[in-house]
Design a protein around this nucleic acid. Structure first.
Lengths: 205, 205
DNA sequence: GTCTATAAGAAGATAGAC
DNA sequence: GTCTATCTTCTTATAGAC
């Protein structure tokens, strides 16, 4: 990783921990191991560093299309999900998804930074919502549509079914973001959630 | 409302919109209609204003005990909920709760401020989690325990049942906080969520 | 309690040597 | 590309009159 990239990396870490306004260019330089004025050889100013981070983020979000997919980052795996649903590997998939988003270094820092900065910039709150509400619900809703079509789960309201699957995952994710020490507890609840979800939707009309 | 209170009120509005670091004492003074130096006759410094806001917040949170209760802010109403559950007024109660937390002016601004500032201060993230995760789940879990005892709803896992009820409400609340124009859409989903929740847990073992 | 004037310091950014 | 020195601006806070 060259200096220009390291600046983005360290800045992202700092922004995600303290927010843009509470991070000084000197902090970033120090984290990188250079002096503050040297930053300006790589980026026009502090805002340009922030903007560059957003660009990287947008690019990554685009790559993983409907982020917070059922399989996390692999649409191929998702595509096969409704074929093997008989074994209730929905649990394993849900946990993988959760852990991927919780532990993937970039994803995690982006999410925390967005959480802090979203109210200052309407565009950021739109990105946050798209990434953590609309896209997951849309993508997962499509998958559940297939699963229901296969007769593996039953419902007359797929959007609500999707919300029932996803909202607890999202909620538990926000808990772990705030207090990583609660990960074990949340994973346990997550597993119980999916098992019960499967049970509730598995044998009703 | 005297000047001292108006300072807190305007500061809370500004902090919830831009975050502590992005609000200058001059902004607060301007909002109140006085000059910045006059603020210092009421509060020792900027941080003291923030701290005073937190105190008010803690006091209010304490008043409404297990905030995000089923009935929002009225434990008496909650206490009677499991007697009249036959009429599925769970929907109305859920909507009232949601709307109370969405529209109550103080609650809303506190929540947004906490969202922005929580990562800077461990204590704040603890307050946030307690207020929007632990307390609601604990309180609602107790109520669902009673409801289940009455045989009105059925489950072998009350914590997960409570999560299933609350997580969608929480998730939809975070959507409306970010984009108030989606309130109608979210209310519709909320209502469908509770109806389906009632259906799923109403006729299973 | 509010004002004007201003001090004190912090933070972002530039100049120019190496 | 990195450094030291420095400038500029912004922000908090104080002094002292009214």
């Amino acid at each position: 990783m060259n200096t220009k990239e390291r600046i983005l990396d360290e800045a992202l870490t700092l922004f995600s921990e303290k927010g843009y306004a509470n991070v000084y260019v000197n902090d970033i330089a120090e984290a990188v191991g250079i002096k503050a004025p040297s930053l300006y050889k790589h980026y026009k100013n502090k805002q340009a560093i922030f903007d560059a981070i957003l660009e990287v983020m947008y690019a990554r979000f685009k790559e993983t299309a409907g982020s917070l997919n059922i399989a996390g980052d692999n649409a191929d795996v998702d595509a096969g999900i409704y074929k093997s649903m008989e074994e209730t590997d929905l649990v394993q998939l849900g946990k993988n998804l959760f852990l991927y988003y919780l532990h993937d270094d970039y994803t995690k820092r982006f999410r925390k930074m967005l959480t802090i900065e979203q109210f200052r910039d309407k565009a950021l709150s739109t990105v946050y919502m798209d990434q953590y509400f609309d896209a997951p619900l849309s993508y997962q809703g499509m998958l559940f549509g297939l699963i229901v079509q296969q007769g593996l789960l039953k419902t007359d309201n797929i959007p609500v079914m999707t919300l029932h699957f996803y909202a607890p995952i999202y909620t538990l994710l926000t808990v772990c973001d705030r207090d990583p020490s609660r990960e074990e507890e949340c994973l346990k609840l997550l597993e119980e959630h999916i098992r019960k979800f499967d049970e509730l939707y598995g044998r009703n009309t």
